[in-house]
Simulated scan of single mutants.
Amino acid sequence: MRFVVLGAGGIGCYYAARLVAAGHRVVLVARGAHLQALQQHGLQVQHPQFRFQQAVVATDIDGLVRDYAATSVDWLLLCAKSSATQPMLEQLKVWLAAHASLPVLSLQNGVDNEAHIAAAIGKQRTIGGLAVKIGAHITAPGQVDATGIGQVDFGAWPQARDNPMLHAKLPLLSQIFSEAKIPNTIYDNVNYALWRKLVINNGVNPLTALTLLDTQALTQHPVFSHTVRAMMQETARAANAEGVALTAADVDEMYQLICGFDAIKTSMLVDRLKGRPMELADICGPVIRGCQAAGQPATTTELIQALLLNTVATATA
């Protein structure tokens, strides 16, 4: 099959490498020094159970539009930062319109990306998704270190019953992922899965960026561990306000999951360490918005976000 990985950072490169190793044709869309390294030296991925080092096909967005017809692509994986979703879709507006049935799978943080994709190309082409139990970061241009099982959970957005034709195509993608040794699950209600992941992301990402601790140190800390749980509870409250039923059991399960996972640097921590914009609007934003709508402000999430923004502003002043 023919894939485009749009936003080939750590996560995107890991899945691209798995697909290439399984014999699929993949075009990686990246930029800057990372793109140059991919083009000149290939991609190197280091994972405890997977090693990949070989030439890959890589380009930027302009090159994708110029050199690759959308009709020659079977699946597009969107792995970019959430803040890049709308600008990328706008850049690719004409290109995407040329292939009226090209499905787009979002593997991004947050719960708002799918709505942006659907607004641009229609929900009949929009697959909600999330990368589960994986940490993957660019350690040098063209080089990625990854850990975890790298599962992909996905489903027709917003639910299978709303999008039956796209849902019927997903077993093929599931088979492709499985053969590429990417564990995966198809959800009938992918919004539920997206909000469950946001429980983890909001629980640890902002706090790791504030404290500079990895997830294991954070969840083992006698004080910060309580803050993690409080932010997870606020996320569940926001989900319920948005019509997605998350229970205390969901929160407990997500808390135990992150406590038992490998020590990882979250994407938000890595962004702060590298001086890059953080995905606060996409991770904390929906929680704050949902809790405000419910009349129960997300006071802990608001506090951690404010402290983090103030700390970064003070450090760069």
Rank of each mutant, 00 (worst) to 15 (best):
L6F: 09
A8F: 05
L19Q: 01
R25H: 15
V27N: 02
A30V: 00
A30H: 00
G32R: 00
H34P: 15
V57A: 08
D60E: 00
I61E: 13
D67S: 09
W75Q: 00
L76I: 00
L77G: 10
L77P: 07
K81P: 12
T85R: 06
L89Y: 05
E90F: 04
L96Y: 13
A98P: 09
A100W: 04
S101N: 07
Q108Y: 03
D112P: 01
D112G: 11
N113P: 03
N113V: 05
A120M: 11
A120K: 09
I121Q: 12
I121N: 10
I121E: 08
V132F: 13
Q143C: 10
D145G: 01
T147E: 03
G150I: 02
Q159D: 11
A160P: 08
R161F: 10
H167A: 15
A168I: 03
K169C: 13
L173M: 07
I176M: 10
F177T: 00
Y187E: 13
A193D: 12
L198M: 04
N202C: 15
D214E: 03
F224N: 09
A230C: 06
A230Y: 00
Q233W: 15
R237C: 11
A241T: 07
A248I: 06
A249I: 06
D250Y: 12
D250T: 14
D252H: 11
D252K: 15
Q256I: 00
I258L: 09
I258M: 08
D262L: 12
M268V: 02
D271N: 02
D271Q: 01
R272G: 02
P277W: 01
L280V: 14
A281S: 12
D282K: 03
C284N: 15
R289I: 06
C291N: 08
Q292D: 14
Q292R: 15
Q292S: 13
A293G: 08
A293S: 07
G295N: 04
T299D: 11
L307W: 10
N310H: 09
